[in-house]
């Protein structure tokens, strides 16, 4: 039952991703790449690239993308539904509790322990993506490194840190730089 396993996978993504944005990434990677092998790491990295360039939350974008590739349009709908279902329950309950105990410290204490985990998990997922970008699949050796992408990565990171410019612009420029550099390298 492909619909059921899509649904259960994305319920887990919706239930355990805290912090929004890239925080959902490690969970999606685990479900989609490692557990079910619906996408390869390289396809997953493309998915993150596409998600970052299109509107909408990464989790919903991934649910749609994976769902439609695995089980067509209804796969997309079911995966997306699974992904938002935990939010519907948890957030309505939270809203109710929040109105009652607005100033409770328990909430803050639990959150203060979850936030550093989110940072660590994003870092870990970032490393997988960097691996895919710099090395051909499954072989992390210095001799295998894609030097063009290495230079693009370092330059982009420095520009982002120094000038705080629009990440979508930077990503597009990276794409253009990758195309030009590879074509030039091929010509030589």
């Amino acid at each position: 039952m492909i619909y059921l396993s899509l649904f259960i996978s994305f319920i887990q993504v919706g239930m355990f991703s805290f912090g929004g944005g890239y925080a959902a990434m490690p969970l999606i990677q685990q479900q989609v790449v490692e557990v079910h092998k619906w996408l390869t790491m390289s396809q997953f990295t493309d998915l993150i690239t596409i998600s970052a360039m299109t509107p909408g939350p990464i989790a919903v974008n991934s649910a749609t993308f994976v769902g439609i590739r695995i089980a067509g349009f209804w796969g997309a709908v079911i995966a997306t539904f699974g992904c938002i279902l935990p939010s519907c329950f948890i957030v309505s309950v939270l809203a109710f509790i929040y109105r009652k105990y607005k100033n409770a410290s328990e909430f803050g204490n639990v959150m203060s322990c979850l936030r550093p985990v989110v940072v660590a998990l994003i870092a870990s997922a970032g490393i997988s993506i960097l691996q895919t970008a710099l090395f051909s699949e499954n072989s992390v050796k210095l001799s295998n490194m894609d030097i063009i992408n290495g230079v693009i990565f370092v330059t982009a990171l420095i520009i982002l840190r120094k000038f705080k410019c629009n990440p979508i612009l930077i990503m597009s420029l990276c794409g253009v730089a990758g195309l030009c550099a590879n074509l030039l390298a091929g010509a030589i």
């Binding site: 970008a133 894609d146 992408n149 597009s172 550099a181």
Partner: peptide, 11 residues
Amino acid sequence: KGMQAGVAAVI
């Protein structure tokens, strides 16, 4: 491929 390096930088 180039954009993958860009995404890694953004992350």
